[in-house]
Design a protein around this nucleic acid. Structure first.
Length: 586
DNA sequence: GCCGTTTTCGGCCCGACTGTTTTCAGTCG
């Protein structure tokens, strides 16, 4: 069972408790919700925790939930959950997928409309909305009926998919441009997961400092590209853009903008953890500031910036990338936050494809070596690696491959540049773990990257053996886009990361953080594990065009979210240092 | 059902917005 499936199961149990218990035991429902969220945000597989008998190490999972999950992992069934779901029509869990419908409304709809089966439940609900039956239900009405009909349409049109960070940036830039046309904007910032630099973004959150929130919100909901307005109050409004993209805007006075930044940046779990800390100190936290819980004389305290906000809780300022309630609050308390990698630390790009025709069966780049070298100089790099794909296996014996590599070296030598260019190559890891070019050809390279481009579905065990076999060759230094995932398109391969990380640490192999926005691979949660394991990482843009060299910042985002510091990154080292490691390696 | 730097019992984050009523429950972030 995947983390997603376990999280869904626990969330369904939470909903079932809400329906059955009424107010009697609402904290049990909350506990299941928290356990569900904990697993959803868990870095590693919850099944691995179970394998090690450490389910209760997951915060939010206690003896009871652990016992129930144990039964599921062992037998695939659970008497407990069957009992929890008993008496709740399966249609309810379909209805919960619709925005605006929670457990209470879902059960009412199921009962009053007599829709019990999950099969076709949403279709039948849609019919009931059209025939006006929903409006007849007590405490529903014409308004609710309309909203439900609209939400069903959106649900059916496109299941909500998270955007790539690069897409979200573009959309946010447009909306910010529009809102900024209003003259009462004093400050405007994009917050939420985009500010935390998450690899994918769900909703776009924008905060505005202003003396006139009403005028801002009125202007905001007139955004020309919107498909509808979800809601609008005195401080907040939400609109929907094409492809079901939601944009939330919140406006406040300048003197509490710091609190607003903090609140709207999240993450939700980070904020909840902060509020729990505040509560123990007799304080209450909100987007408006901090106030006393039982002390009416204690006036709300405003914060102009985030530093003073965190300081008032005896915490050092926490970089947004770390705000996931994954240990950053404890580290801030102990003044032990990492000194995160910065874009300006990067001295090289170690995955670039030029237009040199290496006669590969994969794709080649669009830009010349000269263009790329010039751009790299502009970015302040000291060295780069050209890593075109290996020549196609068909029609190239080793002699021909060597010829091509030599020809490429001559081309590199003709580039007039101050930076050092390494003659490298991205070599396929074949299904059996062998490399796509021979030993002598590999010997001609300065170093090689290896990566998986076929047979993605191998078992964890054989995939791990396959990769370790490829990494064992002395010329291989980099394991590129290691999970081979394509965001929203292809899941990553299964690997025993503990073994991979250990091998790389012991044998001086570097694991890539591929900065291409559709990959961002190694993913942030595995970067965190790699850093903990003492593995050295490398950043590469996988550029096939000169302008993609700018994507390096997305790779830096991922590194930062994985708590990586300058010392963890090979291409944050100077050329002299890099060459020393390259030689000393093997 | 979970959890502990005042607790193994007694708490459990905070506020906005909507629709339906007329003071609030439900949902969301």
């Amino acid at each position: 069972m995947s983390n997603r499936e376990v999280a869904d199961l626990l969330a369904a149990a939470s909903a079932a408790y809400k329906i059955k218990d009424e107010q009697k035991n609402k904290f049990r429902s909350i506990a299941y919700d928290r356990a569900s969220a904990a697993i959803e945000h868990l870095g590693s597989e919850v099944k691995d925790f179970w394998d090690d008998g450490k389910l209760e190490d997951v915060p939010g999972i206690g003896p009871n939930i652990a016992k129930h999950l144990d039964e599921i992992f062992k037998t695939g069934k659970s008497k407990h959950f069957n009992k929890v779901f008993l008496g709740v029509p399966p249609s309810v869990f379909e209805f919960l997928k619709i925005t605006g419908v929670g457990p209470k409304k879902a059960i009412k709809l199921a009962k009053e409309l007599n829709i019990k089966s999950s099969k076709g439940a949403i279709k039948r609900l849609s019919k009931s909305a059209k025939s006006g039956k929903i409006a007849e239900i007590e405490r529903f009405g014409e308004g609710s009926q309309k909203v439900i009909a609209k939400s069903i349409k959106e649900h059916e049109a496109r299941p909500k998919e998270r955007m790539l960070i690069s897409q979200a940036e573009n959309i946010a830039r447009d909306v910010v441009g529009w809102v900024s046309e209003n003259k009462s904007v004093e400050k405007i910032e994009v917050l939420g997961s985009l500010r935390r630099r998450a690899s994918t973004v769900g909703d776009i959150d924008i905060a505005v400092a202003t003396k006139n929130p009403e005028s801002i919100l009125d202007h905001f909901i007139e955004y020309p590209n919107k498909t509808r307005t979800l809601g609008k109050g005195p401080h907040k409004a939400s609109i929907v853009l094409p492809n079901n993209i939601q944009v939330d805007l919140m406006a406040t006075e300048n003197d509490s903008f710091g609190s607003l930044l903090q609140h709207f940046t999240g993450s939700k779990h980070h904020n909840i953890a902060l509020r729990e800390i505040a509560q123990k100190k007799g304080l209450s936290l909100s987007e408006y500031g901090i106030k006393g819980i039982n002390n009416l004389k204690f006036k709300i305290k405003n914060f102009k910036d985030e530093e003073s906000f965190y300081k008032s809780l005896a915490l050092s300022w926490i970089p947004p990338e770390l705000r996931e309630d994954a240990g950053e609050i404890e580290a801030a308390k102990a003044n032990k936050l990492p000194d995160l990698l910065k874009l300006s630390d990067i001295k090289a790009d170690l995955q670039i494809h030029s237009d040199f025709d290496i006669e590969t069966s994969h794709d080649i780049g669009d830009s010349s070596m000269v263009e790329i070298a010039k751009k790299a100089e502009k970015l302040g790099y000291q060295y780069i690696g050209f890593t075109e794909h290996n020549p196609s296996q068909r029609g190239h014996n080793e002699r021909k491959v060597i010829e091509l590599i030599k020809k490429k070296r001559e081309a590199i030598n003709r580039v007039n540049t101050k930076i050092k260019i390494f003659n490298s190559m991205e070599v396929d890891i074949l299904p059996d773990g062998k490399l796509a070019i021979g030993d002598k050809a590999l010997g001609e390279l300065d170093f090689a990257l290896v990566s998986i481009h076929s047979s993605f579905a191998q078992s964890r065990q054989s995939m791990t053996a396959r990769v370790l076999s490829a990494l064992s060759h002395p010329k291989v230094k980099i394991f590129a886009h290691p999970t081979a995932r394509r965001i929203n398109k292809r899941e990553g391969v299964e690997l025993d990361w503990t073994k991979i990380f250990e091998f790389c640490r012991e044998n001086n192999r570097w694991i890539e953080i591929n900065a291409e926005p559709t990959r961002l691979d190694l993913p942030d949660y595995l970067v965190r594990e790699a850093v903990k394991a003492g593995v050295t990482l490398t950043l590469g843009t996988d550029s096939h065009h000169v302008r993609s060299l700018e994507n390096m910042r997305y790779g830096v985002d991922v590194a930062r979210r994985g708590w990586a510091e300058r010392k963890d990154i090979i291409n944050a080292r100077t050329l002299v240092e890099f060459e020393k490691v390259l030689k000393g390696g093997e």
